[in-house]
Design a protein around this nucleic acid. Structure first.
Lengths: 188, 188
DNA sequence: GGTAACATTTTACAAATGTTAAAAAATGAA
DNA sequence: TTCATTTTTTAACATTTGTAAAATGTTACC
């Protein structure tokens, strides 16, 4: 069961040895659609990898809720603030479908980081990949209009377009749902 | 010379041993205002820490240039794409003042990551801190209007307001210079 | 000081996006 | 299916922000 997890791309850079050590702390879990597995007002104790299903991270504001991340099969999923600062934060993560996940306790993960060179570098690369993707989005918002961002989203995430409500995609793209509807109407 | 660098916060988490090992590869350099030390179209070989002065990272578009990062004393400074993907990217970094920097070759840094557990975890934390700051900005853009972002910028980066041209701050905040002028005018 | 180069503000107008409300369409449960 | 709920679209209007160009302010250098 755990062994086939090595095929998940996020683990592929690990040697057999490191993966085996890692897997001692892994646990598989399933949750139904609608479950909120990360709560903004809690320090969440787990780091997850999504085996199947879709999730979104969102933040609550006064009049709105904005979605700033989608996770699909193979993506890592955690509370930035719990993981990085051991504090509560602004992120909720909600499962948009029934999901299978692998999880590891942050305390175990941190312990691995402090004992295993290869796993510490694995953790470094996880953060780096998230970083470059996040900065890319920040820059894209400056250079590209909402219509172009929508087009790119369609081509880069065809699965999400089919399976995620447009209201979530609108806020992910940084526009209201009304604006997204107008963009979509203009392509007819 | 190198020894006093241990007081720079980014190095404070390292043990004396690790810092000493690290410092074998460090080099101090000075460049004048206006120097571009990171070029978007090159794979840049160095990772820098800013000892004094101010820098900005920007990306060139068709009709505009957008600034997406400012660096001050103590900040790390590198080409995300060179560092993370060993590729050219979209970032230029320009020194806005005469600057003193410490630099280390990426090849040496990567070698340290692969030999030193503590330094690998140092690198992990560097990426994590950049990540949480970048995501914070992405979310702030959704929740806060341009005027509020400007107010926060003033309180959080009072040094930058004094020393950086408003046209750069405008694009950092995600508005045109005209809009920033209007925001500023509204506080008189 | 005078001048050139550059930065900032202001103005007038245009375009994009937001807001609100309602209608239409899709979804899901009984 | 039918009904209730939710999602998506559409419409009218308000607001924000952008664009272009001119006016003003600032800086650095001869």
């Amino acid at each position: 069961m755990i062994e086939q997890l090595k095929d998940i791309p996020v683990f592929s850079s690990l040697s057999d040895n490191s993966f085996h050590e890692f897997s001692n702390y892994m646990e598989c879990v399933q949750y139904p659609k609608g479950t909120t597995i990360i709560h903004a007002d809690k320090v969440e104790p787990y780091f997850y990898v999504l085996k199947s299903g879709i999730a979104r991270a969102y933040s609550d504001g006064e009049n709105q809720q904005i979605t700033f991340w989608f996770g699909q099969k193979g993506d890592v999923l955690f509370s930035f603030n719990s993981y990085i600062n051991n504090s509560t934060g602004y992120e909720n993560i909600e499962l948009l479908e029934n999901c299978s996940l692998i999880r590891i306790r942050l305390t175990d993960l941190f312990s691995l980081y402090n004992r295993h060179l290869e796993i510490a570098n694995w953790g470094r690369k996880i953060a780096e990949q998230e970083l470059i993707a996040t900065e890319r989005r920040l820059i894209d918002r400056a250079f590209k209009g909402a219509a172009e961002r929508y087009q790119e989203f369609i081509t880069q995430s065809p699965e999400l377009i089919k399976r995620v409500a447009l209201k979530h995609i609108a806020s992910y793209l940084g526009v209201t749902q009304v604006t997204l509807s107008r963009i979509r109407a203009s392509y007819k």
